[in-house]
Design a protein around this nucleic acid. Structure first.
Length: 272
DNA sequence: CTAGGTGCCTGATTGC
DNA sequence: TGCAATCAGGCACCTA
């Protein structure tokens, strides 16, 4: 599933491919893919909007458009965004198809139909509740400590909360906890200063390495970059979906448990 | 405030 | 073999 590293990879590619391009037409094939405004209004407003640049906030792809407007895309589970040559026929899972003035097509495909698009003049109304960017230069150790202090809940559900920390999903939460040698069910308010530091370093390192590997594409997942290529980071996953396989650090079999309704993978020997 | 449950979806996997 | 039930996942939304 696309998380911060996949969305970052995609956003960088889309920026290179699309900065300066202008939407000529938008066709909505699955109306519920449009969260804002409604599908008909979306198709009416898109033509003529110029793409100034493409970036990322949390797991949202953010298109900066002419007139101070923004197009935000959340891929959720199975969303893909691809730039295709003129005349490319949309695949069977295409939900929104944009024609650009230069003839190219921007195709949003989404097998499970969970992905959402927002076209708005008020980006804050869509992405305003997101928490800190873990890779931002000004995200400091003290900021992570502030997120954890006085929280009695388990560590992993906290890491998944987008209003605290924006961008971590199930894969990278598990990988970061392994790298920090912390049990997913450790209570957040019991961490020592040294453990908070380990977690801080682990989160930033795992995310940066995953971006360097252009994201994770699992066997059953559909993540592809803007050119349709899979990522490479799946080859460096230490725990995610590796239950039963030996821990890369100590050889103990990786275990899978369920923590607040999510499959959770960890090494019972290394992580406490 | 946090914790837990449900709905949204489809394709892969499991169970009989 | 074939079909049905279950599972996976992020997030909005609901109740306790």
């Amino acid at each position: 599933m696309p998380e911060l590293p996949e969305v970052e990879t995609l956003a960088r590619q889309l920026h290179k491919l699309l900065a300066g391009a202008v939407f000529a037409r938008a066709e909505v094939l699955w109306p519920r893919s449009i969260a804002l405004p409604d599908a008909a209004e979306f198709a009416r407003q898109a033509p003529g909007l110029r793409i100034e640049g493409v970036g990322r906030r949390g797991k949202f792809i953010v298109f900066g458009l002419s007139g101070g407007r923004h197009l935000l895309i959340h891929l959720r589970m199975s969303g893909q965004v691809r730039v295709e040559p003129p005349g490319t026929a949309p695949d069977g899972h295409a939900r929104v198809v944009f024609d650009l003035e230069d003839g190219r097509r921007l195709i949003f495909s989404d097998t499970r139909k969970f992905g959402r698009m927002y076209l708005t003049s008020d980006m804050g109304a869509v992405a305003g509740k997101l928490g800190a960017e873990p890779l931002a230069e000004d995200f400091a150790l003290a900021d992570l400590r502030a997120l954890l202090v006085r929280r009695k809940g388990a560590l992993k559900p906290l890491l998944l909360r987008q209003d605290l920390l924006a961008g971590l999903g199930n894969i990278y939460a598990d990988e970061a906890l392994f790298a920090a040698r912390l049990h997913p069910q450790r209570k957040a308010d019991t961490l020592t200063p040294g453990e908070v530091r380990r977690l801080y370093t682990a989160i930033r390192q795992v995310l940066a390495q995953a971006i360097a590997g252009r994201g994770t594409t699992l066997r059953d997942a559909r993540y592809r970059d803007a050119e349709g290529r899979p990522g490479e980071f799946q080859e460096r996953l230490c725990v995610y979906q590796r239950h039963g396989e030996p821990c890369v650090r100590c050889g103990t079999p990786i275990e899978r448990i369920v923590v607040s309704q999510r499959g959770t993978h960890y090494c019972p020997h290394c992580q406490s």
